[in-house]
Amino acid sequence: MDSKTLARYIREQSLRMVSRANASHIGGALSVADVLAVLYADVLRYRADDPSWAGRDRLLLSKGHCCVALYAALAATGFFPEERLTEYGTDGTDLLCHVSHMVPGVEFSFGSLGHGLPVAAGIALAAQVRGEAHRVFVIVGDGELDEGSNWEALMFAAAHRLDNLRVIVDRNGQQAMGDTEQVLPLEPLGDKLRAFGARVLDVDGHDHDALRAALSDNDKRPGQDRATQAPTVIIAHTVKGRGVPFMENKLKWHYSAPDAELLDKALEGLQA
């Protein structure tokens, strides 16, 4: 499945899951859909029939509340049957409403914010020390960067030159109670991240070609001097609710689930 088809699949299935389960967080799932689609279609090395394959790239979804998008990507790429997506959020399933490592293909459970980057740094350190070639990707929300633990871990990653670590910030500009720049301004975010020792790439988080280039960027620097090695942060500029015009940039869709009528309307007007 090419990345465009996969992105559309992720959006459609995410909408269906959230609607069926009357769950929250569809806005952030739609904003990160293209990032996940490009990762699974073109960037990540994985074996769907062997989720624990040692050589796999590790992907951590620190913004675990947007797990519907990841579950959809994993179903589409064969980690488990698509029918299982209908279990999401129902009694007795392990398809929890925050990302769960009990689901095949999910590396680690998250839900409380600010956890992913430290764990990713630990995984990246283990790979570096052992000389293993896999890469470690971690997707964090922009509002999540309020948590100080991210900055602790980024300092650590820079100190130990973890250039196998790729942090993707889903920069959709909104957090639970409002715009990020109103709650606790993050800008100038790129400068802050650079000051913490990261290589920073700004990219349109819905432009697949740009995402492909950014997500593989550090791979093109073989034999570089250790002194210039650093973790990479890709700031993916996105739109919360992307693809569903009536949801775009509306805080309501951090919380609300579309009912059957609105689900039809969303799917009908779904834009790639």
């Binding site: 590396e107 430290p118 995984i123 283990a126 790979a127 300092m155």
Partner: peptide, 22 residues
């Protein structure tokens, strides 16, 4: 590793290392 005065990161980094079998 001295992770610095950063206990939250230390616990998370430890979890990441342990996830890899350490």
């Amino acid at each position: 590793y001295n992770v610095g005065i950063a206990e939250q990161a230390m616990a998370g980094i430890a979890a990441g290392l342990a996830r890899e079998g350490l």
